[in-house]
Structure formats: C-alpha cells, structure tokens
C-alpha cells in the first residue's frame, strides 16, 4: 500500500479524496495548511505528496521550497486551472508534476501511479536496469535512483533523475519531448506543455557546465533534447548486483 500526504486547505475535499484514494489502495495523511503539512512530511516518510498551491499562510510554493531542502519525495502540485505561471513556478521549485484544479480524481490517481512507478526501488527484482551507468564524470545508480557528478552526489527530484537516466541511456541521440514525457512523466505531452522544458532547465542548473562551458544537455529546437557525448567517452555499464548483461 502506498502512503500519501495530502496538503489542501479544503478539509471536506480532503476527506472525500482520502476515501476515494483508499478504495484505490492508497493510505492518506492529511494537512490543511503549509506549516502542519511540512511537520507531517518531516515526521513520516511518504511515497508521494499532493500539494495545493493555494494554502492559507504559507503557500504551496513556500512549502515545496522548504521541503526540497531536506527531501526529494515526489511532489504532485495542484495549481489553479489556466494559470500557466503557477505550474511553471512549481516545476522550477522541484515539483515532479502538476495538475490543474479542480481535477478528476481518476486523472489524479493515474498521475500518482506514474510518479510512483519511477520511485526508488531498494530491493528491486528487475535486474536488467540495475547496473550503474557512467558517462565521463557522471555516474548513475538506477537501483537507488541516485546520480553523482565528479564523485559529488546530485540532489535530483525523481522526475529529474528519470529524465537524466533516459538521456544518458540515449547519449548522443536525440530524444523527443514526447518520448521524455511518456517515459519520465508517464503521460503523453499535452498541447503547449512546457513541463519537460522546465524539468530539463532545473536539471541543467544542477549539473552545471562541462569543461568547455557548455551544458551537456543540448536543445534540438522544436524537437527535443540530446545529451552530448564528450569525444572519446561512451556510456559504461557495470553490474554491481548481478551478472553482466547488455542493458540497451
């Protein structure tokens, strides 16, 4: 059973949503303002957090900013419908995805499942993708879904890690935004959806620049993104847990 934290000031809505989610096999903690939401998030680990932007006192963005300083729990933001700025700000601050509110609970569950599908699997039984990947100074551990650059741990959100892994596995090749959206967000890209761009943008900030002062993630205008291979470098896979095998 997946454990969720729902932070929304509408207590009636929360109650009903918790009921609905329970039937979909989720257990739900609730908080009705930002401060208590943060408290609960710090006390117990959750699989995912649903966070409303409009909260009394401390708003959703502030909560997210605080939260991201300590943990990388996947966050799904609920933004006011039609307010593109809110969703962009949310993604910039490290939300994993957003959903305009009011939203259909079925859609909410689908998004949650998409986020949860790509969370870290400590004792993963799928062997094929667990070998660590290295590309130059970049090292990815699909088992713990963590990445490090020049032996320094990168603090990536779950979505950012997923994007990075997809790009590393396809290093040197163009990956379209559609593909990235399907694989990393678990949903097809909607029209004028800038989610992928926002995630890539914050990923770039975290990775920084290469020796030649260029970002390793290059934009192919109107199509997608590509991780550039420094000359003479290729993706190395090494099996740490099981037998060596071809991963791609």
């Amino acid at each position: 059973m997946n454990h969720l934290l729902l932070i929304d000031d509408d207590s009636e809505l929360c109650k009903m949503l918790a009921e609905y989610l329970a039937a979909e096999d989720f257990s739900v903690d609730m908080a009705h303002d930002g401060v208590s939401g943060l408290q609960i998030a710090r006390q117990r680990p959750h699989d995912a957090i649903i966070l409303d932007v409009m909260l009394p006192g401390m708003n959703g963005f502030d909560v997210l900013r605080e939260l991201r300083q300590q943990q990388q729990t996947p966050v799904l933001m609920l933004t006011a419908r039609g307010d593109d700025v809110d969703s962009i700000v949310g993604l910039e601050l490290g939300a994993d995805d957003y959903l305009p509110k009011p939203c259909n609970p079925r859609v909410l569950v689908a998004r949650l499942r998409a986020i949860l599908r790509r969370r870290p699997t400590p004792q993963s039984d799928s062997t094929e993708n667990n070998e660590s990947l290295s590309l130059g100074e970049l090292l990815l551990e699909p088992g713990s879904r963590s990445a490090s650059l020049r032996n320094e741990q990168l603090t990536l959100t779950s979505t950012e890690y997923s994007l990075l892994e997809i790009l590393v596995r396809n290093a040197g090749h163009l990956v379209t935004k559609d593909t990235l959206s399907e694989l990393a967000l678990g949903r097809p890209m909607s029209r004028y959806d800038r989610s992928i761009d926002m995630h890539i943008s914050s990923l770039r900030k975290k990775i920084g620049v290469l020796n030649d002062h260029q970002t390793p993630i290059q934009t192919v205008r109107g199509q997608g993104y590509q991780l550039v291979l420094p000359s003479g470098v290729s993706v190395q896979t090494s099996s740490q847990h099981h037998q060596p095998g071809e991963s791609r």
Binding site: D10, E12, L13, M16, L17, E19, Y20, A23, M54, A80, R81, K101, P102, C103, N104, P105, R106
Partner: peptide
C-alpha cells in the same frame, strides 16, 4: 472563481466516489 471551483472540486470527487 476560486470559491466556485472549491465546491466543483468536491463535486467531482463525490461523483467518482458515487461511481466507485
């Protein structure tokens, strides 16, 4: 509009509960 959307959001959840 926010106030209008709050009951609407509850309505949608109630609807899905009814469906369940």
């Amino acid at each position: 509009s926010h106030e209008l959307r709050s009951p609407l959001a509850r309505l949608q959840v109630a609807l899905e509960l009814a469906r369940q």
